[in-house]
């Protein structure tokens, strides 16, 4: 699998998420994206870093490809929800906005690549597009679970950016992302459990008593 193929795949999975309403399939898509992402270290690491690449790839695969999806699926079963009901932004509009975000991502990537950052415009664009998609899902969807998925996609974007731009510098960079994702998803999972015990569903639009 070439580097460009991988980035195209990351962009496509993000686009699918924008148009998907079934929560279980969204979780599967995010798991797939995480699994694809776990190949990235092999493709961008400089020679001599093989051990580190293997470690990173294994960690990414285990967390993003297996652990998180399992945790989220468990939350899904306990919260007893199946699909995103009446999102704030409809699915076809979401996809159209997704295309606009993709164009924005390419524009930004072009500017950045121009000042000597990143492997290629595509690598940067894919990273930015994942970040935008994640943010969009957090803002435009109502289920707490979808918001966590959005957060994961946002983190995937940052991980991809970090690895391709400053991957050569220090272990802390990758550790930071993995730690962040691990703890955030773990904590968010607990939070969702608390919330779903208190409320019947985990619709964020029920969380609207606090105003002003």
């Amino acid at each position: 699998m070439g580097l460009d193929t991988l980035f195209v795949f990351l962009v496509l999975t993000s686009l699918i998420l924008l148009g998907s309403s079934l929560l279980s399939s969204s979780i599967r898509v995010v798991a797939l994206q995480g699994a694809v992402l776990s190949f990235l270290p092999f493709l961008v690491m400089e020679p001599g870093w093989a051990g580190r690449a293997v470690f990173l790839a294994a960690l990414t695969m285990a967390l993003k490809g297996i652990v998180f999806p399992t945790l989220l699926n468990r939350s899904l079963r306990e919260a007893n929800v199946r699909r995103e009901m009446a999102p704030l932004v409809g699915y076809s509009l979401s996809l159209a906005l997704g295309i606009a975000l993709l164009i924005l991502a390419f524009w930004l990537a072009g500017r950045l690549h121009g000042i000597g950052v990143g492997l290629s415009t595509l690598s940067l664009a894919a990273a930015f597009f994942m970040m935008f998609t994640g943010l969009f899902l957090i803002i435009a969807r109502r289920k707490a679970l979808t918001q966590v998925l959005g957060f994961l996609v946002l983190e995937n974007g940052i991980y991809s950016f970090g690895l391709t731009v400053v991957g050569h510098i220090h272990w802390l960079v990758e550790l930071g992302v993995l730690l962040d994702v691990f703890v955030a998803v773990f904590i968010m999972g607990i939070a969702i459990d608390h919330i779903s015990r208190e409320f019947d569903h985990i619709n964020v639009d029920q969380l609207d008593q606090l105003k002003g």
Binding site: I138, V173, A191, I195, L207
Partner: peptide, 24 residues
């Protein structure tokens, strides 16, 4: 719980943004 969720989500995104800044 509502306040906690809002805090967790907004600040996690904020901190993720700050991480992006740190990388840059």
């Amino acid at each position: 719980l509502e306040a906690m969720w809002k805090y967790l989500l907004m600040c996690s995104v904020g901190v993720a943004c700050a991480f992006m800044g740190t990388l840059l």
